[in-house]
Nucleic acid binder design. Sequence first.
DNA 1: TTTTTTACCTACCGAATGGTCGGTAAAAAT
DNA 2: ATTTTTACCGACCATTCGGTAGGTAAAAAA
Lengths: 197, 197
Amino acid sequence: MGKRLGMPVQKIEKNDFLLRCWEVFHLNGYYNTSMQNLAEATGLQKAGLYHHYPTKEDLMRRVMQYALDEFRAYVLAVADELDLPPEQRLEKLLRRHKKLATLHRRGCFFANIALETGREGQFNEVLKTAMTEWAATVGRILLERLPAEQAEREGLRLVMEYEGAVLFYKLTGEEQYLEDYVHRTVALFNRPAPMPA
Amino acid sequence: MGKRLGMPVQKIEKNDFLLRCWEVFHLNGYYNTSMQNLAEATGLQKAGLYHHYPTKEDLMRRVMQYALDEFRAYVLAVADELDLPPEQRLEKLLRRHKKLATLHRRGCFFANIALETGREGQFNEVLKTAMTEWAATVGRILLERLPAEQAEREGLRLVMEYEGAVLFYKLTGEEQYLEDYVHRTVALFNRPAPMPA
DNA sequence: TTTTTTACCTACCGAATGGTCGGTAAAAAT
DNA sequence: ATTTTTACCGACCATTCGGTAGGTAAAAAA
């Protein structure tokens, strides 16, 4: 697929490479992942990594961009499946995220890295983009059933609540926390919305 | 203050020691904190730390227990201030947690460590205790205004939403996320509770 | 007064860390 | 056919890592 030009035998496709790095970072966190770990996971040698990326931080930044792209394509894109009614779109979107979170029982990649690096951290820009975009996307779905201002607020609130649910899931291993979240969110949305002004 | 017996000149009080370690762990995370960092923060030498705690993991475990004790005494204890009406107790409790979260802009210590170490992590037991105890405490306050089952569910949900708000706060630095959370939570609680069955 | 116990230090260990250097081989460009 | 560009590797580097060994000094116990 898509051979790039001017290269001798490439051992691994770029997207495959980024995926494997993402898996390792997601599993171990940023600081607890070594370049050696990444080399083993991708089949390259450590120096091979440095040929493509000058530092670990740069590599991570690239991985985060990749994760954001995948997140958009796999989760957020559901919001544009306009053949479905908004309630079903919301549920489908939430279930996709749930599948990601439970994949290796690692929860939300962005939240993990955000809380690990945090305080004006090196990756805050991408992380901020991911989270706000997510909240905005949920808000956009809600817009079809709720007044504009309320939809936006509620989209943000739902994402917050979801991240909390993931935290409890990660701690306990109980998928029920996520399942309950999806249920009560969908239920909330299937009603005429008895929210306070 | 409480001199312990059978000791030569102690350089630092035990609680002061644990507090300083907690600060460092809270600021840098677990993996990104070295024993050297902790030594510098406490005024001891590295080997001095190992005299008191056999491994970094053991030390962290002790710090987490300390954090849990402080959390109980400073935040959760508010739930027992029965001279206040439950609404005010809830708000006071939330504001205390907010003060902790904004202290060094580091958010919730327990959530940070949970998401960093996670997957059947070394500290999950204490973390689970902290989080569920917190949710239960909020639920106990709500019990005075809501039916039992609903109070428990809502206590958990409020904690989840709070952790999500902290995540956004950490990413953006916007304290407003936390302030909004407190406002809408207290507002929600000051009404006759229009929750779905 | 001697012995024990404790708190802590200096100096060190092997392993792992992020990162560099100088190659090699193959495809592509000339 | 030659040169350039690229992907990658083995070996290495200084530093830091978690952790240990052996000692010193002082308070407490005997």
